[in-house]
Amino acid sequence: MVNFNGNLFSKDSEILTQNNRGLKYGDALFETIRCVNGTVFFWEDHYFRLMASMRILRMEIPMEFTLEFLEEQIRRTVGKNDFANSPSRVRLTVFRNDGGFYGPLTNKISYIIEVSPLESPFYIIEEVPYVVELFKDYYVNKDMLSNLKTTNKVLNVVASVYAKENGYQNCLLINNDKNVVETINGNLFLVSGEKVKTPPLTDGSLNGIIRKKLLEILSSLDDITLEEASISPFELQKADELFITNSISGIIPITKYRKKQFDTTFSKSLVGKLNAKARVG
């Protein structure tokens, strides 16, 4: 079942038309959320990121769009898909209503909630090779729009095709300054000795929810120096570890970049802390 503006439809229902602004102009935002046994992981963070993003895009936020209302709609949709007692992946998409060309006729919005199953109720790390490469054909812009989780993801799509064609599990995306910003599907962290770095939002990286939670965890560790700073491609092969974060997988250790094999000890040590933080909310 799919939730469209509070009404439930079968997944094969023809809900949207050719006039949908998300389709025509990428005029939409989305949140990808992990839900386990009725608990919506990091829901407040997802909600407030969505509200801030809607304001930046000058979308009209409906009066009923409260934290509690949307959480209930998510749980309702999860329950109707028979995932109330199992882990699931939720996608909440908000788009400006039909009408207009580049200039919309209205700033009012609609939303869709979709649900699909997940295998594990916890964040886990799979013991598999994870090889990445730089994607240099196109660049991430250094501006606030790059921080938002919009449906304008054609760069990520093309990079995904490149990765598949060349046998990589992921690609590292760079900005116009040729600094590494993020990966196709998450934020990037670099570990070198006792120092952990992640690209700053000013470099164009996504304002990721798990990025935020990892920053909170890392800042509480006495033996770690945390830095939000630009990462040059030349630093990658000198690092001890590289890992990716996103809301569905949690932490994904990178095992190889070009000729460099990476350790995964530190990233594995963070998974338990992230799961504990998810349970707390």
Rank of each mutant, 00 (worst) to 15 (best):
M1F: 09
G6A: 02
S13F: 09
S13Q: 06
N19Y: 12
Y25L: 14
A28N: 06
L29T: 00
F30Q: 03
R34I: 01
T39G: 03
V40T: 02
V40I: 05
F41W: 11
W43I: 00
W43T: 01
Y47D: 05
L50V: 04
A52Q: 12
M54R: 03
R55V: 07
M59N: 06
I61C: 05
I61Y: 02
F65C: 09
N81D: 07
A84S: 13
N85H: 10
P87F: 02
F95E: 09
Y102N: 13
P104Q: 03
T106W: 09
K108Q: 14
Y111I: 00
E119L: 12
P121Q: 01
F122E: 15
E126A: 05
E126L: 08
V132E: 12
V132I: 09
D137C: 10
V140P: 07
D143L: 11
T151D: 07
N152K: 02
N152W: 02
K153F: 06
L155H: 12
V157T: 00
A159K: 00
Y162Q: 00
N166Q: 03
I174C: 10
N175K: 03
N179P: 07
N179T: 02
V181A: 09
N185R: 00
L190M: 14
V191P: 03
T198M: 06
P199H: 06
L201N: 08
L201G: 04
S205A: 15
I209R: 09
K212F: 11
K213P: 03
K213Q: 15
L215T: 06
E216S: 12
L221Q: 15
S230Q: 10
I231P: 12
A239M: 06
A239R: 02
I248E: 08
S249A: 13
I252V: 15
Q261K: 08
R279T: 08
